[in-house]
Design a protein around this nucleic acid. Sequence first.
DNA 1: GATGAATGAGCTTTCATTCAT
DNA 2: AATGAATGAAAGCTCATTCAT
Lengths: 218, 218, 218, 218
Amino acid sequence: MSEQDKMIDELFNHEEELTEKQKKILAAAIEAFAEKGFAATSTSEIAKKAGVAEGTIFRHYKTKKDLLLSIVAPMMAKLIAPFVIKDFDKVLKADFETFEEFLRAIIENRAKFIIHNMQLFRILIQEIPFQPELKEQFKEHIAKKIFTRFERVIEYYQAKGQIIEMPTYSAIRLTISTIFGYVIARYLLLPEADWDDPEEIERTIQFIMHGLSPKSEI
Amino acid sequence: MSEQDKMIDELFNHEEELTEKQKKILAAAIEAFAEKGFAATSTSEIAKKAGVAEGTIFRHYKTKKDLLLSIVAPMMAKLIAPFVIKDFDKVLKADFETFEEFLRAIIENRAKFIIHNMQLFRILIQEIPFQPELKEQFKEHIAKKIFTRFERVIEYYQAKGQIIEMPTYSAIRLTISTIFGYVIARYLLLPEADWDDPEEIERTIQFIMHGLSPKSEI
Amino acid sequence: MSEQDKMIDELFNHEEELTEKQKKILAAAIEAFAEKGFAATSTSEIAKKAGVAEGTIFRHYKTKKDLLLSIVAPMMAKLIAPFVIKDFDKVLKADFETFEEFLRAIIENRAKFIIHNMQLFRILIQEIPFQPELKEQFKEHIAKKIFTRFERVIEYYQAKGQIIEMPTYSAIRLTISTIFGYVIARYLLLPEADWDDPEEIERTIQFIMHGLSPKSEI
Amino acid sequence: MSEQDKMIDELFNHEEELTEKQKKILAAAIEAFAEKGFAATSTSEIAKKAGVAEGTIFRHYKTKKDLLLSIVAPMMAKLIAPFVIKDFDKVLKADFETFEEFLRAIIENRAKFIIHNMQLFRILIQEIPFQPELKEQFKEHIAKKIFTRFERVIEYYQAKGQIIEMPTYSAIRLTISTIFGYVIARYLLLPEADWDDPEEIERTIQFIMHGLSPKSEI
DNA sequence: GATGAATGAGCTTTCATTCAT
DNA sequence: AATGAATGAAAGCTCATTCAT
């Protein structure tokens, strides 16, 4: 079982069991959408790559867009999974004495998840600008939830004096841009460059920490 | 003359004079590509929006991709214009005592340029993942040039003790992610939110400054 | 089953079975190409004539030119079929005491074949000047093979003293021009004229015989 | 002045004087039509090849078909020129004692004319099957006239006992096929082969002579 | 007379989708 | 469940022709 197959099993094989053909269709579609984009990928191309008949795709997914959503939805669901655990922040506060520990955990956990599902992440960020329903879904179900939880975390560490006083949304924006900046540079823009990952992650964390800490703190 | 028209005149009307129809085609294509993406925009749609016959598009641009490149190329050229001034860094060093002043100038200048040409910027970042020639062109002619100049700037302020010791490429990455993070959040993700721009820009600059300054400095 | 249908079955239905629609496409294309020429026939015209959707044509034939080649190739193959029988000339020599008998057999056999597939023959000679790959294919696979066999035949009858001494290629050229001259005049230029076919064929054979015989022989 | 230019002057420059551009258009169209066929040649292609604007073509020739007819008509007119001389056959009979001499003169004169205007001849025979008006014009003004004159010639030499008794149209057909067979093989099918022209012409004439002579005669 | 921008009909081909098997 | 032939709309692009300059 390939890496790709395992990923598909993990992400898609929950509710209903997938047939072998269905998995092949998903794998082919993911690869094609990530590489050429949704609009520029034809269903016949997916069928050929998956080794199934064109009709088979439409037996499982009513339309091409349906196929896209079937791919992207579980990715989004998994992406926020840790954030929707009822007592997310409580756990956090207990577990992480400092914001730095929290950051490290986030990167360890979420960034690793993204990296592990890079193709899906590519599809997500590449298609969100073009698919209004995706954008809406993302805002409503992902962004908002993450934002709400994150807000509490920021406030918590601000109360502890570890983060400078500023609107939570600004702190969130700055933190997330920096992390995404690393992920995108590392895995999308210059994947073939020679990266010293632990070092770069360390620098990224320190950058955020210094950027957000009250001056006296450091 | 509309805002759009002026932008088109500035960016495209340099070498050869554009006919009225050509300008309309460009305006229509920019709008459509930004909104729906290159692959999902049909030439008939552009023609209708521009109020010209479909054949007219192909008289001026051999193929649809040609039209895309004709739109994106001048954007890229202008984007790096200030960086290719021969003695870019010399000028900088003379003009800006501190890295903070430099940052402020960059944001004032380049970020404003991007904001002013937001649709073009959208097209650029949306299509780079799908058009290999665009990606190549961007890397070779834009990214490399900017990186080289930026490197000198970082080294200069590192020498002055204003920036912490770290590889220049890390400093560049962190700086650029943060600025782009603001631009993207502000103008692409949440344009309709209620932003206090001067405040946000100030916070962004301070975040970078603290993030990169030697601890003792602050 | 019409005459046309039978011809299509004979010529095209060998390797893979053709669907009903495919046969209709072939019949329509043959008729149209013969009448208006390949370049002046549109695929939409063929589709309409065949009573199928335009897309159906391209499901079976990748391009319009592919359709042309699919029509012409079997015609060429069948055209030389008798010539590639391993011991063609041996058989001939045994069967035909005189060159005249041989000529009569050729006309009976090959000319009849051409007449029976007149539309295909028209397409062949009309398109060879314009389609380099057709020309090449014709020269390499048809002309050369026929020429080689024919050469042996001429030499054989020259040895028997039935044909005057002259280069074989000249004898071949003169014989073939005369036969083709009849076929073209009879079936392409003046098909509606009042022809006494047996008489004309007889005259044509006698003309060749006298033209090629040693004077004393006659 | 090139060979091509001279030909154009001879054939086209009679009634109205041609402008330089017009000559270039004719030259370009002749070359393109001969090579790719009328239907597969675009007017823009002709314009480019002629170095004129597209509009210029339509200033001189109302339609593309008009251009074709303008090219082919003078070719046809010149082709029969010698046959329409009022007392063609009288002259002939006086000049040529034998049918062989007549044949030699025809080849010398008409075949040479065709060879000298090979591109035009190609266009003529390639397009006649597709252009009904061309076909009609050819039949009515060329074929019939030639046939009528030729008939008298055949009858004359039949009366002199130099040609075997057979319907005149058969004798004409056989003679013309043989001559055209040579011209087509020599100049269209195998122009690059190594031909000994005087020898081949001699053989062609002898073939016709033997083919048509009463047996005892030879 | 010459231009070339502009046109819109029509070209070949691809597409997502349907449906009988 | 799976197929793949069939569809017809729409894609990108080319064409002959017009016309203002």
